[in-house]
Amino acid sequence: MALSHFLAAASGARAVEISGLEPLHGGALQENWGLDARFSGGELGGDQRLVLRTDAATGITASLTRSQEFAILKAAFATGVTVPEPLFASADSTIWGRPFLIMRRVDGIAAADRITSDAALDPAFPAIAHRLGCELARIHAIRPPRPDLAFLPPATETGPERQIVGFRAYLDRHPVPRPVLEWGIRWLETHLPSPAGPVLCHHDFRTGNYLLDGGVVTAILDWEFAGWGDSDEDIAWFCCKSWRFARLDREAGGIADRAPFYRGYESTTGRRIDPQRVHFWEVLASVRWAVIALQQCDRHMTAGAPDLDLALTGRRAGECELEILMLLDRAGSCCDA
């Protein structure tokens, strides 16, 4: 098997025997496979529990390649962020059919609905939120220039002005007019914050993208959208309503109030979080997720991936539109009839 040979060559083993291979629940854009393997010699000698991560059959263009995600994981691991140790990557499509990366398998659950509705975790949630604030702060400690991350576009190409251009270009192609998104984007355009020094942003740091095992954070996952950006963008993404799942009232990822999350972040960075900046980025988060949801639906509609889940994801854009209205025109909700 080509994968066994690859693992043997990459690890310096005499041979690798794969004893288990199972699909894992993962993101909509990537496939994750649990991989049990016995390494004969080499740097991983013995039994290993691994994950093979590869592209799904169809993806959207904003995500990193697996080789690039591997480089990001290495940088995060070296900085002390709690991530699965990245081991190998390959762009050779003859081995698995698509490029892939290999990392250690970490125990825990990521299912956001399950986490946010688990009353048994209630006592632990403030500490988990604090820890996640610390983790995010460590990610943001990675700053340019970084030769190992030279493939990332400069922050000037991913800032809010560029995102606004991208949102509008997408809406121009979308067959259904979206007045609320246009209104929200206009607000963003006229309320741009002053630029902040670029940091490494995860760009999808939220409940559902970390693992919890017994109330302990065991891994930050899904780095496919990482890039240079404004640190407040990640803070707002974690807190925005779209990612609170079963607990809309718990503003930090559906698990806690913002206070412990903010405290964890502030105690690690020494920087006070500015709620006004986070408010801007929360509006942008709702617009961004609306556009991503519509793009996911496009994969079902036009990109050759008929799928009930993708089709229904497009309906979530309406939730984001409601949140945009609630963030920017709270008083208007009284005339909703």
Partner: peptide, 18 residues
Amino acid sequence: AARALLWRLTVARLRRSN
């Protein structure tokens, strides 16, 4: 009037889908 319309469109959309 435009804001009120945005609310009505959004609420109507969610009444159908969520």
